[in-house]
Design a protein around this nucleic acid. Structure first.
Length: 209
DNA sequence: TGCCAGGCCCTCTTTAGGGCCTT
């Protein structure tokens, strides 16, 4: 039987041609990290050819060029490999609404559904770190002094920073609220909790967690 | 025809508008 740790999430990040798959935008890179019981145990990073040229803005924003993508595997091949990587584990992303719509869109192109649940590190960070200057990923990394190699807007680097943020938020929930079993479901609920009721929610969760 | 993201959340709110965040 395959080993399946109870507390495992996949933290992922897409680089894309733009903001909306509904308007024809495609994924150009996927990066992801497998986290088992608070430890990074595996990584996935692949460029993918999106069947269209990317804009100068995206080349500048990500550092990914049209030339780099010419040699990349088709998105369909990469997404099939990625589907195997994520299995049916729960997923985490910074501004998950963005990554989830691209994941759904790219998996649909290869006839695969997306059944995994998402939690959003952005929404949780807005609850926990209300004094942060803002809640961009890079700002939060500096605000919490999290590990970074200085690379931003590349899929694996962003997924790793999101992972460190996620683990830091779990740690802070324990030290601040005494929640030592903050699981995926709790973090998902926290992201959906009305901001003004966060403390009440966490106090109640501390009792029931 | 003309426009073109969309979900979350705050506030001068809920019969709305606008900022944040992702590429």
């Amino acid at each position: 039987m395959k080993h399946r740790p109870a507390n495992t999430v996949i933290v992922l990040d897409f680089e894309t041609t733009g903001l909306s798959p509904n308007k024809g935008d495609r994924a150009i890179e996927i990066g992801a990290v497998r986290v088992e019981d608070g430890r990074i145990t595996d990584r996935f990073q692949r460029l993918m050819y999106p069947s269209q040229r990317i804009s100068g803005f995206i080349e500048s924003y990500t550092g990914i060029t049209n030339r780099m993508l010419q040699d990349a595997d088709p998105a369909e091949h990469v997404m099939a490999e990625f589907a195997d990587f994520i299995e049916d584990f729960n997923l985490v992303a910074h501004n998950a609404s963005f990554d989830s719509k691209f994941l759904i869109s790219e998996l649909a192109r290869i006839g695969q559904p997306c059944r995994q649940l998402f939690a959003c590190s952005l929404l949780v960070a807005r609850r926990l770190y209300q004094d942060a200057p803002n809640h961009k990923l890079g700002t939060l990394v500096r605000y919490k002094n999290l590990p970074t190699d200085g690379t931003f807007h590349r899929a694996l680097a962003d997924a790793e920073m999101t992972t460190h943020l996620w683990l830091k938020m779990l740690e802070d929930m324990e030290s601040r609220y005494g929640i030592d079993q903050a699981d995926f479901a709790l973090m998902q609920k926290l992201g959906k909790t009305v901001k003004g009721k966060t403390d009440e929610f966490l106090r109640k969760s501390a009792v029931t967690a």
